[in-house]
Computed example of a mutant assay.
Amino acid sequence: MMDYEMFKDVVREKLMSLMPDELAGYSLRADRTGKVNETLDAFHLVPPDCLPDKLYPTVYLNHVYEEYKKSGDLQGTLELTAFYMAGACREAERKNSRINLQGAPESIVMSLVNTQQNREMLGYMPHREFEDLSIIYRYVIDTGNPVESVPVTVEMAERIGMGEEELFHAAVENTRRFFPPTTEPLKDVIVEMFMDGGFSEEAAREMGNAIQTPIYCISNKMSINGAVSMLYGDVIHGLAERLGSDLYILPLSVHEVMAVPTEGVEPKELAELVEKNNMSRIRLSERLSNQVYRYDSKQQTLLLATDTPNKRLDGNGTTHDRTDGKKQSR
């Protein structure tokens, strides 16, 4: 079985020969592409008149190589990849026909990613840092199920004439309109976290039943990129007032966070549960942070409550300095 570098060269050499005739004249463009929480080797299928604001099919060689290792069938892997790319090309054409950059201000929304884990991706995306996280922006094509959207790059932002400040203010309004925030009581999640931490189901449920502290999930009605809802002051302050307490915020994923009153719990112990949840239950692309945040209801501030050394989300235990939450990138 060939190694990864050789496999990448073979794909580059042979993939286009397996494409349908309708894609004659297209070419493969290789680069390193930042995805949430990881950077991957990518081949993009682009036409001769490649334009910067268009979508083009992309295949991630790291993922294709994993499939090749499972099957051991090089030709089958190449043919399946070509089939996927051809279909993705037709889908990209459909999406491109629906992108209207003139109406972009009404379609910009925001989500949260981990700053340190996504330094490379953030290098070409307008963003705004908040503690150890960053707000990024997406252009929504369709709010159906599934939601279709594309990330806003620096290049796209320039083409639609919006700076980071304008993107932020548009996104705050649009995100609430497209994806209304929600706060719901949550109990079973903590039981699953205890089970993933090594407890038996019976013991985990006993501990879950013994927890008298109310637990709430903050997300949105679509349960997609809902962790950003924790930044809405009225949402988190309303929950704190309802519970009569400051709150610890536990990032369960990019899609939701969990809020618990601060009395009787230690943030460091909560951070340990968050890390176990990330590493055992959450896909890398959906992990948000290994830290815990505290909402001070008197000061109406949301800040990091922990500074544990395990800041990376991919299992590489490197440490980084905390951000101050005030930096912006344009």
Rank of each mutant, 00 (worst) to 15 (best):
M2F: 06
M2V: 14
Y4V: 09
M6N: 07
M6K: 12
V10S: 00
V11E: 01
R12P: 00
M16F: 10
E22P: 01
S27R: 15
R29M: 15
A30K: 10
V36N: 11
V36M: 07
N37F: 06
E38A: 00
L40H: 05
D41N: 14
A42M: 15
H44I: 11
P48N: 08
D49K: 12
D49I: 06
K54Y: 15
K54H: 15
Y68H: 13
K70A: 13
S71C: 07
T77I: 06
L78M: 12
T81L: 12
A82S: 00
G87M: 10
A88W: 12
R94N: 06
K95C: 10
I99N: 04
N100Y: 08
N100Q: 08
L101P: 03
L101R: 11
Q102Y: 07
A104Q: 05
I108S: 01
S111Q: 08
N114W: 02
N114I: 04
N114G: 05
Q116G: 00
Q117V: 02
Q117H: 03
R119C: 03
E120H: 03
M125I: 04
H127Y: 07
E129C: 07
E131H: 03
E131T: 05
S134R: 02
I136N: 02
R138W: 05
I141W: 04
V147L: 13
V150C: 08
V150Y: 08
P151V: 11
P151G: 10
E155R: 14
E158R: 13
G161I: 09
M162S: 00
E165K: 13
E165C: 03
F168R: 03
A171P: 02
V172M: 07
V172K: 02
T175L: 00
R177I: 07
P181L: 14
T183L: 04
E184W: 07
L186M: 15
D188W: 14
V189N: 09
E192R: 15
E192W: 08
E192F: 09
M195V: 13
M195C: 08
G197Y: 02
S200E: 10
E201C: 03
E206W: 05
M207Q: 06
N209S: 08
N209C: 04
I211D: 02
T213M: 14
P214N: 06
P214H: 13
Y216W: 15
N225A: 14
N225V: 01
L231G: 02
V235R: 07
V235W: 10
A240I: 04
S245I: 12
Y248K: 02
P251K: 05
H255G: 01
E256Q: 14
A259L: 09
P261Q: 11
P261K: 11
E263G: 01
E263F: 06
E266C: 08
P267T: 09
E272P: 00
E275A: 04
N277E: 12
N278M: 10
M279S: 08
I282E: 03
I282M: 05
R283A: 14
R294S: 13
D296K: 03
S297F: 00
S297V: 10
Q299K: 14
L303V: 08
D307C: 07
T308P: 00
R312T: 10
D314Q: 05
D314N: 12
N316W: 11
T319M: 12
H320V: 15
H320R: 11
R322F: 04
R322C: 05
R322D: 08
T323V: 01
D324F: 07
G325A: 06
K326Y: 12
